[in-house]
Structures are given as structure tokens and as C-alpha cells.
Nucleic acid binder design. Sequence first.
DNA 1: CTGAAAGCGCTTACAG
DNA 2: CTGAAAGCGCTTACAG
Lengths: 341, 341
Amino acid sequence: MKNVTIKDIALRAGVALSTVSAVLNGKTRESRISEQLADRVRGIATDMGYEPNQTAVALRTGKTRVLGLIVEDISNVFFAALAKIIEEEADSIGYKVLYCSTENNEDKARERIRMLSQRQVDGFLIIPTPGMRAEIERLSAQQKPLVLMDRYFPGLLVPHVVVDNYNGSLMAMQHLLEKGYRRIAYVTIQLDQVQMHQRRQAYDDSLRNAGLAVDEELVLPLSYYCKPGESVQQIRNFISTRPGIDAVFFATNYVGVYGLEAIKDLGLRIPSDLAVICFDDHDIFRLYTPGITIVKQPVDLIAQTAMQLLIRQFEQQPGKAAGGNGLQVLQPAHLVIRSST
Amino acid sequence: MKNVTIKDIALRAGVALSTVSAVLNGKTRESRISEQLADRVRGIATDMGYEPNQTAVALRTGKTRVLGLIVEDISNVFFAALAKIIEEEADSIGYKVLYCSTENNEDKARERIRMLSQRQVDGFLIIPTPGMRAEIERLSAQQKPLVLMDRYFPGLLVPHVVVDNYNGSLMAMQHLLEKGYRRIAYVTIQLDQVQMHQRRQAYDDSLRNAGLAVDEELVLPLSYYCKPGESVQQIRNFISTRPGIDAVFFATNYVGVYGLEAIKDLGLRIPSDLAVICFDDHDIFRLYTPGITIVKQPVDLIAQTAMQLLIRQFEQQPGKAAGGNGLQVLQPAHLVIRSST
DNA sequence: CTGAAAGCGCTTACAG
DNA sequence: CTGAAAGCGCTTACAG
């Protein structure tokens, strides 16, 4: 019942270990091994039910053919979809993937990176949390193949794939404006992040392009530390004290959740009383939100592109200058317009 | 930038490799190494940023501390939820998990098991597909720690965790009967599987217990090979030609999907025109099905129990008779009653 | 064309 | 108390 090794095969075939290894790795040409011998060895290997021990291969070659995937929560639909596509892409090049959830817990996130490093993964695919910056920086310095998805650290030259926040938001605003909405509110979270600035910029620009003024009265920046109940109340208050508004653009998932709650509380109907657009970073409104319009990330494109960036790094010679470093790939957002039934 | 090894530490500390290893593995007692020396070695290890190479440890000890998780589709909410809980449980005992999707493709499923074996995973957590039987049997014969979830092979003595189909179905029927429904139809798929027999048995028994006869006229067994469109049509036909029925019990996910489609086609309202219960194996109706009542698997319990069964196998001495083999754990189903709004 | 040897980074008897 | 040596299962120069 013990596992068959190349040694067993070599013994049975009466040849050296290295011969078996060469045959099994298809290096008969390079090693000028006769086809006849090769066939015999292959036959014996099959007979004995040989399966290579990848742990040994990994130790010897320094390649585990395993990728590390770090997400916020694997059970979330967005991350699960990401995991699926990454699995497929990895599979197509003979890689397996080890997944970890960070729960947005910084300590856990750091620990995850360490564990995956110890397990010698060949590359990392990460949805970074803010506190991971130092670890990401270290991985990058160690020249570990690494791609960030969904979020990134401005100033850190690490390849990353993110949605095109500006144009996605622009599309959404365009949609509202075309539908004739004029007093469009903007509810966001006070966060000094590029993607937030880009979304806001798109809001401003599209209003101006339509010949409308940006009215700060119609912009509600919630505090990052504001608790759920309080956020809902603030939004409720905001909406009810701005009688003229006919639409709201919620700039993030969380704000959107609170916003929909507030709108429900106020007894307003979407979109007849109030049109709603939400930037749905993590695809949480995918099924159960009739009437609203959603700007979502193209999860498949993001995953596929991330894998391509990773593979590109695998192919680079470690010595060579990493020409592709600091590469940012912007993926166009999808606009999903839900009917109100 | 090269990785620090225990050799480097030994060199720096001026001691033998084995001493470093003993210290780092907390075996100072067994090896009677002075606390002073141990402290010094630990200090040096920390200084040098030592991270053990788990590939080497795995090769040497024969334990990778990696689990293989094989599901149908990691992006499905049910499997993703399973993956999350398994990750947590695995993490708590220092394990990582490698996931694979089978897509219900038998060849792929078999190939996945082979790959995971080659990667020397310490244990398998599998949602088996029918065609995996031979491979599962082989793993079991090889004494590989292994637990099946959600499905199993009757007659194969492999530990598995499944939902209690009989009592879950009984609960659902009870619910309908208590609500006063009397002519309850049963739509199922013709499949000679234990879980199907158990569900049907519960249907029959609960009717009889309520003093009602089982009317084969009210039972629709769809062919396994029936195409979606055709299935919907058959159900539509079935319902419309049985004017007396006031409720339907759909015995599986797929049948339920077709059934809801058919009911929609007929313009019937749930539950006012027709009450609906569905055995929702994979939690696909979780969000978007108002009015229907769902019998679902307790995904957390299943995952946790599966991990426990796996750990039990890790703890067993390989020589010892596997006392817990062929163990079946039934988990009680959940009944989710949706309001019709 | 083929095979003996070194070595990947560890752990674990075992000798002193 | 400490250290030299073997070995996990491979691959890869290198010698013949």
C-alpha cells in the first residue's frame, strides 16, 4: 500500500533513477534514451500505478505549482465567483490554489500571507486590506509574483487589476441624466482612497457636462466610523430634507445597503419616487434589488487579467528588470439596469 | 534575498542543525537543550527573519497539513459557504485547503482526485459525483482520511455527512398538513438514490399519518433525461390537469426550478393559489423566492461535522482498525418559511 | 546513450 | 546536553 517511487520503478526496470526521471518527464530526447527503453519504463510506471510526489518535486525544483488566493470572505458571491475563475485559469496551466479569507482583519491578513509564504506558493492573488501594505511591500521586494485585485495601494508599484471607477460612475450618471433626472444626490463614505475620488470626480464631471452645477448640499459624505443604524438615519434625514432630489447615487456597497434601508423606511418607491444607482463593488445586490441600477465589477475579466499578470511574472527571469511592475489594468465596469418588478 | 534556512541559523549560532531544529520545534526539553542556548537560537532565527519551508517539512514528515476540498462549483453559494466554514475549521488546526470544482464532470472529478493525491493532501473533503465511486473506493482502500458531504455511495463504507432527508421532508409535509392543505402533489426526479427514496417515503408516511391516501395520480416522477423546457411543460401539464391540488412538494433543486417556472407560466400565485415546498439541496432559492417554503441543508453543521470526522481519522493510528469507518452522520434539515411579500 | 552523486530544507533516531 | 548522519522523493548537472 505504500506509494510507488521512481526508485521502485528503476529497480524493477533495472535502470538508474535518473533514467526513469528523464523518461517520465519526457526528456528522452535530451538524454538520448532509446524509445524502446522509454516505452518499457513508462509501461512499468503505469503498471505500478506510479504517481509523482509533488512535494518532492516542489522541494527539488523550488516550484510548488500552487497559488495563494487571499480574499475578504470566500463565501461572498463576488469572491466565490473570483475563486471559480481563478481556479479555472490556474488549472489550465497546471496550478492549484490555496484560499484564505481575511475577514478584513488585519492581523489575520498578515498571518495569511506568512502562512502562504511558508507553504512556498509560487504566486499571490490578493484582495488587499489597508493594513496589508507592509506585507505586500515585502513580497514585492522579494520579487514574489503578486497581483492585487479590486483594491490597491497608490504609490506601491505592484501589478493590480481594478474596475474603471471613473468611467463606470460616468456611465451610471449618464444613464440618470438621459432618463431626465436632474437633481441627483451623491451619498458616499469619507475615505481618502483613489477609487472614491474617481467616483466623485465622475459625478461632478457628468453634472457639469450636462450643464448642471454641483451642489454640495446634495452630497452626503458619511463618516467611516458611522455605525449602521446611525448611517441609515443620516441618509433618511438627508433625503427627507432635500425635497427636490429625484435620484441618488450611492458610491459604495455599504452606503448602498444603508441607503436602500433608509429609502424603505421613508416609504419611497424605486425608481418612481426616487431613482437609485449604486456602485456595487462586491456584487451583493445581484439578485434582490428590483428597480435600482447597479455599477458592478466585471469579475471574470478581473480574475482572468489578474492571472495573466501573474503568469507574465512567472515567465520573467528573476534577474531581469521587472518591466511590467507597477502595472495597473483598468477593467470597464458593467451597468446593470434592473426593472422594477 | 535568498531564504534563510536552519543551516544559516546553525552557522550563525555556531551549533548543529539538529539543535536549531529542536529549539524551533519546542523540543528543548526532550533534547535537554539549555534555555539559554534556546533563547539565543530563537533570537537569531527571529533576527534573520526565518520562516520554515513547509515543503521540506512536508517531504520529511509526510504531512503537508493541506486538505483537498472537491465540490461541484466553488462559486455556488452553498459550496462557497461550505468552503468558508471548512477554511475556518482547518485553520484552527493549522491546515490549509486546496479547492477544486468538478462541474459534475466525471473525468474532471477523477483527475482532481489524482492531482490532490499527487500533491499529498493529508485528507479529502468531497461532494462526490456518481462517477467518482471507483476513485473514492481506492482512496478509502489506501486509508486516506476522507469524508463525503451532501451525497454518498450506499454500500461504500466511507464516512459521510448528509442532511436528514426523511425527517426534513416529514417536517415540510407536516407544515403543509397543519396549514390545512390536503391534496398535496409530489414532483420528483426518477433517480434510484437513497435520498430520493427517503423523501418519497416521508411524503407517503406523512399523508398516511394524517389519514390521507397516497394518490399516485398526484405524483409526478420526471425522467432524469428530461430536458429543462420539457420538464417545465410536463409540470405545467401535470398541475393544470389536476384541478384539486392545493400544494406541491418539489423533491429537488432542479425540479423546484422547473416547477416554479411552470407555476409562473400558469399564472398561479404562491401560496394563495398553490402552496409550494421545495427541498433545496444547494440553497439556490435562498434569496429570491417569496412565498415558498424551503427545506435546506444546515451547511455549517455539515461542514463542521465533516471536519470532525476527518480529524478523527487523523488521530487514528494507521495500523489500527478504522472503527469509525462507514460512519454516517445525519444532520437535521432546516425549514425556511418565506412570507409571500 | 546511461548511471552515480549531490542536493532541495527539513526531522529524527542515534552516538557521544 | 550537543552534533554528525541518514533520508523523505525527486531533478539535474556531470562523468563515463
